[in-house]
Design a binder for these strands. Structure first.
Lengths: 167, 167
DNA sequence: ATAAACTTTCAATAATTATTGAAAGTTTAA
DNA sequence: TTAAACTTTCAATAATTATTGAAAGTTTAT
């Protein structure tokens, strides 16, 4: 496997993994491309390499910037805008975890709280609904909290946490 | 909010959250419905409650069974098949984490390993590709391993882990 | 062996989501 | 102020994914 093959394989695999962290294919591929690039890339560069349209590139770059994963780089003397992504994997994990929590997990926690707070009318089915949604609420909230703690220990969080679990 | 409203709210929220754990809406809604039901439900029951077709119900129940989340319940004297879901949230989390790891994370880890193992031809771009995919490989592998350790401590894993992290 | 009761399969269709491309918008240089 | 260089927007379209429903398949009771 040569450089180009390996790069394409990485970009497309990372792209199809997008669903795992809740973003679309093009968005994940753009991020992957920037992630292994030695220098900032222009919109032209990205369009050409991934064979996607200008509009698509523009929209997905904007989304990546909203996530805080990609930043605009101004190169003096150049008219074009250039883009780079966060290169540190741990910082990347931190940003992604935080955003997913905010966008998807928090709203669900709120619904679970509402549903599990309905008035207990004494029937078995109401009791079951309350019990089960409460259990789900507690699990979701605790897991979310744990992940946030983990990722907010900026330095080497995974290694540290793992050590604590093993000992 | 009365029982029916609360139940529907829970089922539809959990359904739209399906994407978070990598399954489709109907599948997540069926699981949600079983999760708060006081008794096993038949295909009829599910179709009626969620207003989805027989085919859809059948296919999604099969998938839930493949995941190991839902099981068939034979009720003596009854011709119909009945279904129940795992009711314990921690066991549920364990199953989901394990399946997602197997289905999605492991294949990606393999690709990252392959890509990061290409021959270093000395160029800056090859060095960058190797370095970055190796970092991603290590992060992904360690995170996956950590999650597996966490969820395999069947009893109260979240609480225990959290305590270890706080102290 | 037959038929009723039930489940599965899968081609057709619908719904959703992503992508394009061209027009409108913006910025910069002269 | 003009025009070139570039980016954004968004309606139209394409691609993907989910859903239906009816025919085929299976099981059970008689």
């Amino acid at each position: 496997m040569n450089y180009e093959e390996a790069k394409m394989k990485f970009v497309s695999t990372w792209g199809s993994l997008g669903s795992l962290w809740g973003i679309n294919k093009a968005m994940a591929q753009i991020q992957a491309l920037l992630f292994v690039s030695t220098k900032p890339l222009s919109m032209e560069d990205i369009m050409e390499d991934l064979k996607i349209s200008r509009g698509n590139t523009s929209m997905n770059l904007r989304q990546l910037m909203d996530w805080g994963i990609v930043t605009k780089e101004i190169i003096p003397g150049e008219r074009k805008e250039y883009f780079t992504t966060e290169k540190d994997v741990q910082e990347l994990a931190r940003i992604i975890a935080k955003e997913r929590s905010r966008r998807e997990i928090q709203p669900v926690i709120r619904v679970l709280k509402d549903v599990s707070s309905i008035k207990d009318d004494g029937t078995a089915k109401t009791k079951e609904l309350i019990k089960q949604t409460k259990a789900l609420h507690d699990l979701t909230e605790t897991a979310d909290d744990m992940i946030n703690r983990l990722v907010n220990q900026k330095q080497n969080w995974i290694t540290k946490s793992l050590l604590k679990l093993i000992k």
